[in-house]
Simulated assay, not measured.
Amino acid sequence: ADTGVVSHCEILVRMVDHRGALIMPAAFIPAAERYGLMLQIDRWVVDEVLARRAAQICAAGIRFSLNLSADALGDAEFQTHLIRLLEETPVPLSRIGFEITETAIINQMESASHFVATLRKMGCEVALDDFGNGLSSFGYLKAFSIDYIKIDGSFVRQVESNFVDLIIVESIHQVAHRLGARTIAEYVEDASTAERLRRIGVDLMQGYYVGQPQPLAQLLDAAAPTVAQPTALTER
C-alpha cells in the first residue's frame, strides 16, 4: 500500500561560505578529490553522525544513510575507524545505511566487496547509488550483495514521458527484486513521475516531490546549527 510515510533520510554534507551561503557538493567535492581531502570529509561526517550527534539521532528514531567515497572504500585505516564507531554508537545499526557508487568501487573492487560484506554482517544496510549511470552497473551485482539499488535520476526524471527511460527503470526494478534488493528512485520531482513509479512497483522514492532538504539540527529538533542536510525518502 502507498503510505506516503517518510521512512529514511540521506544525510548530505554542505559547506558554508563567509557570508553564510550554502555551497553545494558539485562545487567542492571535485576539488576535495583532486587534493586528497575526501577521507577527511568522510571521517568528519561519520564522526558527526555516529559519535557527536549519536544520542540525538538515536532519540529521534530515524533511519538514515551516509555516502562513502572511493577513498574510504580503499583505505584500511578509515574502515577500521568506521567499524569502531559502529561498534560504539548507541544508534541501532539496523537504522544505519551506506551508499556507494559505481565510480567509487571501480578501482577498489576487492577492498569494497570485503568492506560491504562487513558492514552488512554488522547489521547495516548498503545501497548501490546512481545505478545504471555506468556501462558496467549490472556486472557489479555479481560482486556485491546489497540491500538497495538507487536508480539513477537521469532515467527517473522523464520516466513518464520517455519510453526508453520507462523500460530501463522497469528492468532495473525487476532485476533488483529478483536479487532480493529493494529499489529507490532518485529525483522524483512531480506527482505524475511518482504515480508512474508506484505502478512499476518501485519501493522508495527520493526527491523534491517527496521532501525538501533541511538542516539535520532541524530534523532532530536541536538548537545547534549544522551543515549536514538530509533529503527524505518516502516508503511505498
Rank of each mutant, 00 (worst) to 15 (best):
I172G: 00
Q40L: 13
H173V: 10
G207Q: 01
V16E: 14
L219I: 08
G20V: 03
A31V: 10
E87F: 05
D165F: 12
T89L: 11
Q56A: 15
F28H: 05
A185N: 03
E48T: 13
R199H: 13
A217E: 12
F64R: 07
V5K: 15
Y35T: 12
E88C: 11
T3V: 03
A31S: 04
A70S: 14
I29A: 05
K121P: 00
I184E: 01
L166F: 13
H8E: 09
F78G: 01
T234V: 15
I167D: 12
A60K: 15
I184K: 05
L197G: 06
D42Q: 06
S171K: 11
P92A: 12
D42K: 06
L233M: 14
I106R: 12
S111N: 12
L128E: 01
L68Y: 03
V202Q: 05
N107V: 03
I168E: 00
S111M: 09
I57E: 00
A104M: 02
F163Y: 03
I100H: 00
K150I: 00
P90I: 11
R178A: 10
M205R: 10
N67S: 09
I41N: 06
Y187Q: 04
T101I: 06
V46H: 05
R53C: 08
P213M: 11
T231Q: 10
F155H: 06
D71E: 13
R178F: 13
M38L: 15
S69E: 08
I23Q: 08
I167N: 10
L220T: 06
L204F: 14
S171Q: 05
L73E: 03
L82K: 01
I57F: 00
R52D: 11
A51N: 02
E33V: 07
E235Q: 12
S111L: 13
E235G: 00
R199K: 14
L39P: 02
D129Y: 08
M15T: 02
D42G: 07
E33N: 12
A70T: 04
T193R: 08
R34W: 06
R34F: 09
Q214D: 03
E189Y: 04
M109S: 07
G134W: 00
I29K: 01
L179A: 04
F115D: 02
L204V: 05
A222Q: 11
R52E: 09
S192E: 11
R120S: 04
A59R: 14
